[in-house]
Structure formats: structure tokens, C-alpha cells
Amino acid sequence: MMFSESDIHRLVDDELPPAQASEVAAWVAADPARARQAEAYRRQRGLLHQRYDPLLGEPMPADMLETVRSGPARKRAAANQSMFRRVAGLLLLTGACAAGGWFGHARFDKSAPVDAMAALPQRAAVAFAVYSPEVRHPVEVSASDEAHLTRWLSARLATPVRAPILGPQGFQLVGGRLLPGEDRPVAQFMYQNTAGKRLTLYLSTLAPGAAGPRESAFRFERVRNVNNFYWAEGNRAYALSGDLSREELMPVARAVFEQMGKNTAEASPPAAK
């Protein structure tokens, strides 16, 4: 009977019918080199289990459990709810857009206190336009290193910052970078969908004395070909920018708003700094 190298693998992996297995086992045992090979493969298997099996006993992270247990059910509920909100949001938006163009001019008037919010869409749109076409260096820290990204940006912005999860909206995190803002560092997260369309979330903290609303509704502004939704909440201002239609961008902005709102509520009581 002729056997080959691949039969050693089949033997080690229990891929052979019993009758053939004993023949192959005898063939392997008859030759020290083959026997050593089979032994090495079995040893690898043993080492892999020794090294990684302890993970099976680790407690499951709560967010994983929550994702699965409340997954599809929650999504359905959220979809119904957001349909209502979306309609309400769009109504609100129509008014904001009409006004937005005029308020935009105010930022060039140096005698007035600088409204950090007015400058936001312009800065965010430029940052989007500069970095989103990058093939090799779209971000400074990639999503594969998200834990580091989170620590780094949180340290530089002196407030807990985490990239929202936009998977349900079809966008995966590419990574993030630190950028110079008006008078302080700002964070930019970049996302991409399967079609390769990118969008960025520009996140700035607001100076304690900055003019402008502490809380605001969604505002929309188009800067050249970049559409931006922007808003403020707590001590932060956000702008979501992309070369997407307003209708495409809106649900994503909504998702960011909901997740970031949660973050601020938990993560930045005044004392935490």
C-alpha cells in the first residue's frame, strides 16, 4: 500500500476510516522520520490547547453578552422608535438649514465672541477633505489598535473619548487621528462602508467660556461637496462629515448622537475632568 505525506496529517487529524488509520499508523511507525513528524504535529496541537484553552474559562465580557442577548429584539424596537425620531429630526432640520447659511457668516466677524460652533462645520469639512482620500495614511492609529486609540485621544482631549460603533449603519471604523482645532486638540475618527465611502467624526471639547449653545439640535451645513451634521452636547461639539447625501448621513449622525450622549452622561461628571 502506498501512502503519502498528507496521510500523516490525516492520521493526526482523525480523518481516516479506522481500517486505513491502523495501516497508516503502522507505516508511520516503521520510519523514524515519519514518526517524528507525526509526533511534532501532535505536540503542536497539545501546545495550542495548553496555551489557549484557559480562555474558554474566562468570564465573558458583558458587552458581548449584551450584544447577543438584546441584539435582534432591540434592533427592531430601535428601528420603530428611530423612524418616529427621524421624521421629527427632519422637520427640525429643514428650519435649521434655512437659517444655517446666514449664521455661518457670523464667524468672520472678529468683534463678536467666537462661536466655536459656527466654525465647526468648516473645520470638519476641511479635515474630511484632506484625510478621507488618503490611501496609505487615512488615520494615525488604525482600528486594529482601538484600545490604544481610545487611551491616546482621551488623554490628549482630557475627556473620555471613544469611537462610536456604526456597524449597524454599515460603517466600520478605520481609525483616528489628533488634529489641531481652533485653540485646542480635536479628534477625528474615520469610518468606511463596504462600498469604500468614508465619513469622519470630528470631535472637539468646548472652552468653558465659549459662546454658543451648550446643547443644540442637529444642524446641517454643506461646505463645497461635503455634507456636515453638527451639534453640541455637554462640553463637546461634534461634526459628522461625508461626501454622502443628507439622507444617508442623517441616520449615522443619529446613531453617533445616541451613543455619544450616553458616553457623556456616564463619563464626564464635572469632577471627573
Binding site: R136, H137, P138, V139, V141, S142, A143, D145, Q192
Partner: peptide
């Protein structure tokens, strides 16, 4: 995606 991005800074 990681292949498109630069190496980690840390």
C-alpha cells in the same frame, strides 16, 4: 484595512 493604515505609534 490595517494594511492601508500606518503602524501603531505605541
Amino acid at each position: 484595512r490595517a494594511a492601508l493604515a500606518p503602524e501603531s505609534l505605541d
